[in-house]
């Protein structure tokens, strides 16, 4: 069986490293950081790990319905495509920073992109 992207990128340790870099970028981005106000940092980091695990095609039990439910309150306060694009930008930049090969970055981006409709409640 061929290895999943998650395994090729380096599994859990790689996800942990990526999440910290990514989440600092997100919190420093004035376009989107208001969506992360008043969140518990520890819980948020766990959620970001789940997101990265998903983007790397690793084990996750998230369904489209979960994604919709989890982001519905953010859609209500204006979450839209531009914010999703900003997150995608940080995902790409994070992986570039970690020197992940371009082909793997493209794979991860495609998986993350597939969640767009559910996240934005479309």
């Amino acid at each position: 069986m061929s290895k999943t992207l998650y395994e090729r990128i380096g599994g859990e340790p790689a996800v942990s490293a990526a999440v910290e870099i990514f989440y600092r970028k997100v919190l420093n981005d004035y376009r989107i950081n208001r969506f992360f106000d008043n969140v518990d940092m520890d819980k948020q980091i766990d959620k970001q790990k789940a997101f990265f695990t998903m983007a790397f095609g690793g084990p996750n039990n998230y369904t489209g319905a979960d994604m919709r439910k989890a982001h519905a309150h953010l859609v209500e306060i204006g979450l839209d495509d531009s914010h999703f694009d900003a997150v995608m930008e940080h995902l790409g930049a994070t992986l570039v920073e970690l020197e992940v090969p371009d082909t793997l970055i493209a794979e991860a981006a495609a998986i993350a992109e597939s969640a767009r409709k559910d996240v934005l409640g479309k």
Binding site: D46, K47, K49, A50, T53, G58, P59, N60, N61, Y62
Partner: peptide, 27 residues
């Protein structure tokens, strides 16, 4: 519990007497 894959940390428990397997403490 939630993710069942060690990501969400919802199902954290404790073994007061013996060391749990290392693989169950990842992250």
């Amino acid at each position: 519990f939630a993710c069942k894959k060690g990501t969400c940390h919802s199902c954290i428990v404790r073994s007061p007497n013996i060391l749990p397997p290392e693989s169950a403490q990842v992250g």
